[in-house]
């Protein structure tokens, strides 16, 4: 039997500064055998470790269609993320995973996709966005609405530009009022308001929403107004986690463990859970 707490040893191949205190690390396996047996799907997450400091939970932000590496994007918040931020390219860190369920992108074939993200909520969706873009022929319209507090707080700035230039992606970016710069070409306003303004069709459409709780709370009524059904609205839960495999109890919401039954959940399922997330 395997010790499930033993992480893969990874090294940081590339560091990208995304926004203030937000970084993306591209990680590669130290051991080629680990790389070979490793696979994951869109929506899954992992435990990233700095030995001696602890572990931190984030989604895998890269797409499973891009082989040979994984990427994570994190904001410096606590002890582990601070230690992670002190790493340099070439440094070794630990990674356990993949854990959790996935976005059912096979079931989404032939549908329109609407991705709505706020701030640091884009990384979990970036994984599924690239996954779907790399299998572009499977899906119809792809619309992305992304908002952040200010222009500087937008993550994946180069990719936003790339998506903006693609004819097969409708991208709307927005920043909170006061967060714009003089040459900002996107929208100004909060995500729910911009969603109302853009008013995408709910017909044959899946919505995936990820961001701060307040954004999600205010976005849902707009989606319902647009006619989205509860079972077609997906989000990811972000409870405090420790083990990632349904043992330590931290992320439990009733009998549901965010780490193994989630993190991907439809609004319909979410409504059935005790309000403890």
């Amino acid at each position: 039997m395997e010790n499930m707490y033993l992480p893969y040893r990874m090294f940081i191949e590339k560091i990208t500064e995304e926004a203030p205190l937000v970084r993306t690390y591209r990680l590669k396996f130290k051991n080629p055998a680990d790389e070979e047996k490793f696979s994951f799907k869109a929506g899954q997450f992992g435990e990233y470790s700095i030995f001696g400091e602890g572990e931190s939970t984030f989604c895998i932000a890269s797409s499973p269609t891009r082989k040979g590496y994984i990427e994570c994007t994190f904001r410096v918040a606590g002890r582990v993320t601070k230690a992670l931020a002190n790493c340099e390219e070439g440094d070794e860190i630990g990674f356990r995973g993949p854990y959790g369920n996935t976005f059912p992108i096979d079931d989404w074939k032939g549908k329109n996709l609407l991705f709505i993200a706020g701030g640091i909520g884009l990384p979990p969706l970036r994984c599924v966005i690239w996954n779907c873009l790399d299998l572009r022929e499977n899906y119809r319209d792809i619309t992305i609405l992304y908002g952040a507090r200010s222009v500087n707080d937008l993550v994946y700035k180069h990719e936003l530009e790339e998506w903006n230039n693609r004819p097969d992606v409708n991208l709307f970016t927005t920043v909170d009022p006061g967060g714009e710069t003089p040459n900002w070409k996107g929208k100004v306003g909060f995500v729910p308001a911009i969603l109302k303004e853009v008013s995408p069709s709910s017909d044959n459409t899946i919505a995936a929403v990820c961001g701060p709780p307040i954004m999600i709370k205010l976005t849902l009524p707009v989606l319902f107004e647009l006619g989205f059904k509860e079972e077609n609205i997906f989000t990811t839960l972000e409870n405090r986690m420790k083990c990632g495999i349904g043992k330590c109890g931290h992320c439990a919401v009733g009998p549901y463990y965010v780490c193994k039954d989630g993190p991907v959940i439809t609004y319909k399922e979410l409504k059935e859970l005790p309000q403890e997330y």
Binding site: Y5, F51, G52, E53, G54, K242, C243, C248, G249, H250
Partner: peptide, 23 residues
């Protein structure tokens, strides 16, 4: 059965522990 995971280490190495925790 709930537990927490915590490290104890020095510059040379250390231990990752699981310890009892409670809701």
């Amino acid at each position: 059965t709930c537990f927490d995971i915590q490290d104890e280490a020095n510059l040379l190495g250390g231990t990752r522990y699981r310890i009892w925790d409670t809701c």
